[in-house]
Design a protein around this nucleic acid. Structure first.
Lengths: 212, 212
DNA sequence: GTTGAAGATGACCGACGGGTCACGTTGAGC
DNA sequence: GCTCAACGTGACCCGTCGGTCATCTTCAAC
């Protein structure tokens, strides 16, 4: 050990630049969605464009790394809340945190809606998230906190939907999503309402994404 | 009158081509969102690219024409349903038709979320839609069919949100939006729930859209 | 301090998209 | 059928973007 760093085979500046790039890309994708350009990301990070491609082979790869970060954070949050006593409150907290995270991230909804541009790892991470949220949701169902035919995948989909509902107001009223989250939660709690018309979603991904 | 057509000062092929372009653009924007290219639209219409620009000065202009078509259709539907006896059923029908329309149109949500790229006419059309829907909603409120603090603008925003919720499933389950529409309607009907946390949205547009 | 390999760089490339324009074509009025 | 203005056309311009590469720089091991 030299005393400064102790990376296995990586140079110190390489590690630092990767961090700078991930931060810059997170900000850029959050602000401009998928339209954020590699040049802009390099500029934000204070690096040259070529450096971006040294770290990530393509724009898709970089985007995948960002999405994995985000999905992992959501999944860990769901796992953490799984141990709470009040499953209904835990689910509410998960959704509040989830929508708040998405409120500052334009790319998430765009990516979730286009299976064609998702890496296998991203698809796996989405599946893991759905499983973790299903665990939360199952307990809430058992405790009667949500209606009986709501699944974890429903909850994950609703995060994007609630965000989209409030999105047109984002510039002027950045907290408006709280209104539509509350509305959705009231719908989820309507245990006296009938069964929902369409069957619950199975997997978010299909074996054969159309070749376009 | 010649017997064939009777346009004021327009040539017959000009009118026909405009129709072809609007149809092609509607399909292209619905399928690819704002990423649809002018070249593709020309190709779909069976015309040259220059012809597109003879009819519409810019891509924004063409998009505005498409959006005006769509918004006008929604507004007329709201006006029609305003005369129904059961205001709750009328509102449900309006939302069902609205989400179904959006389910086949990727561009709508993208445009509604970006005031910066909207023509004044489009903004006006959105305002008119909100007014028409507010009339529907007010009657539903009075009849106790929806909770007291729901406005027409809420309903318009929800159309986009419900669509986005089901969007990731669209390829495999094109009717999944019905599930989330039902869920939202249950939330809207929860007259016994408390007041929603965030105040209802005022206007969808702000005097000073950020210059970016 | 020397050295070698991994990393950083920015000029460069091809593809593509919005928009223009000089020219050929067509349709309505006479 | 003649005429002309409006219309249609597609080659072209320019900017941008994702991605590459020969070259220079820098870190770390000795």
């Amino acid at each position: 050990m030299t005393g400064t760093t102790a990376a296995p085979g990586q140079r110190a500046d390489h590690v630092r630049n990767r961090r700078l790039l991930l931060d810059a890309a997170t900000a850029a994708f959050a602000e401009h969605g998928l339209d954020a350009s590699m040049g802009e990301i390099a500029q934000r990070a204070g690096l040259a464009k070529g450096t971006v491609f040294r770290h990530f082979a393509s724009k898709e790869d970089l985007l995948a790394a960002i999405m994995l970060q985000l999905l992992d954070r959501l999944t860990r949050n769901a796992d953490r809340l799984h141990r709470a006593d009040d499953a209904g409150a835990a689910l509410r907290e998960f959704m509040t945190d989830g929508v708040e995270t998405l409120a500052a991230d334009r790319a998430f909804c765009e990516v979730i809606g286009r299976p064609s541009l998702q890496h296998a790892e991203v698809r796996d991470a989405i599946d893991h998230l759905c499983v973790a949220v299903e665990a939360l949701t199952a307990r809430a169902r058992e405790q009667g906190a949500v209606r009986g035919d709501i699944t974890g995948t429903d909850i994950v989909l609703l995060l994007g939907g609630i965000h989209q509902t409030a999105a047109p107001l984002l510039a002027g009223e950045p907290e408006a999503w709280r209104r539509y989250l509350a509305l959705a939660l009231d719908g989820l709690c309507a245990t006296d309402a009938g069964t929902l018309p369409h069957p619950p979603p199975g997997h978010l991904h299909f074996t054969d994404p159309e070749p376009s």
